[in-house]
């Protein structure tokens, strides 16, 4: 599945839906300078901020087991939005990678 990601810097982060917004801004997607979505903002009071484990600069590899590799920005954003909207789970599992 593309270039191997060093396992040591890939992390599974579970974000509980304890606020009515996820509260992250993402940049990137296939065919852009940033090939995988990267977190560029975390809003105070959002579920991501409350979780405390997501950080600006982290790259999102997977959402609830769905790989974002090779997906355009809009597709990746839709997958994350739907993962937050769905009532089936009270959390979202992100696999993130800390570059550098």
């Amino acid at each position: 599945t593309g270039s191997p990601v060093p396992a040591s810097t890939a992390t599974l982060v579970r974000v509980l839906k304890n606020s009515n917004t996820l509260g992250i801004a993402i940049e990137g997607g296939a065919n852009t300078r940033q090939p995988l979505p990267r977190i560029v903002t975390i809003q105070k009071g959002g579920s991501a901020h409350n979780c405390g484990q997501l950080r600006v600069g982290q790259v999102i590899l997977e959402v609830n087991g769905i790989s974002l590799r090779g997906r355009e920005h809009k597709d990746a954003a839709r997958i994350i939005a739907e993962a937050f909207k769905t009532k089936e789970k009270d959390h979202i599992d992100f696999v993130v990678f800390e570059p550098g």
Binding site: R33, Q34, T41, F84
Partner: peptide, 15 residues
């Protein structure tokens, strides 16, 4: 590196 420079910047989406 050159290829990356010619790619367009990405949009930003708030979720």
């Amino acid at each position: 590196r050159e290829k990356r420079l010619t790619l367009p910047p990405s949009e930003i989406t708030l979720l």
